[in-house]
Amino acid sequence: MHSLEIKNLNVSIEDQPILKDFNLTIPKGEVHALMGPNGTGKSTLAKVIAGHEDYEVTSGSIELDGQSILGNEPDEISQAGLFLAFQYPLEIPGVSIANFIRAAKQSRLEEGNTLDAVAYYKELYEKMDALKIDRKFTSRSLNEGFSGGEKKRCEVLQMSMLEPKYCIMDETDSGLDIDALKIVSEGVNLMRGPDRGFLIITHYQRLLDYIIPDVVHVMFDGRIVHSGNAQLAHELEAKGYDWVKETFASPTVQ
């Protein structure tokens, strides 16, 4: 019950199958890494879970703590406790980070209740300090003109402010230098706990040196082809994705 559970998920874009009988269960308290070459459907998976409307789900189920979220609106899925850290966070001109996160938190309150502004700013500043984000950023437009690293730190800031039950991080490490990688990883590690599950999507093992996963999955051609412990990431790094292709490529269907 206390898990993000994806069963036999089939997803297509314009009749092109992307996810094929995909299965994955992330129990609360665990960190799962999902690795694999480009074009195997990792980002599609992230967006489908978050409720993006561009994808056609032909069959399967996605449940969050036993409740189906498949077919729900993205805001409902967010409210149910799922957070997606975007691979390419979008720029929202004129909307400050502080106002955006505040609106997001406000949307979680019952109607008629207002967020306590003093407590909100206290929490925001603490979490910004932890992620080494300059406090001046609160008034900057969300992601506008941010460097790659600043965008990713801002995603982790939003994630820690919204306190989701399940976090999907889509290539949060891409575009990060080593210092930013450490800061982001610390931020994620601080959030780890028995009440939260993580799915970390990445190409590279180096992020997993800082966020040690409980389980590593290898994805290829729309499904998970191999799973193991943290050691598997090192193995992949050493052997390369060609090894995955050679070992797990499905026989060509004529």
Partner: peptide, 27 residues
């Protein structure tokens, strides 16, 4: 995509559009 991003944070479609418009006129 901007609307999807904002909705992923919990805002309804109307709230997301409203925020985008407010951002546009903000300065």
């Amino acid at each position: 995509e901007q609307i999807f991003y904002m909705m992923q944070r919990g805002l309804s479609e109307g709230e997301a559009m409203s925020l985008a418009v407010n951002g546009f006129v903000n300065d």
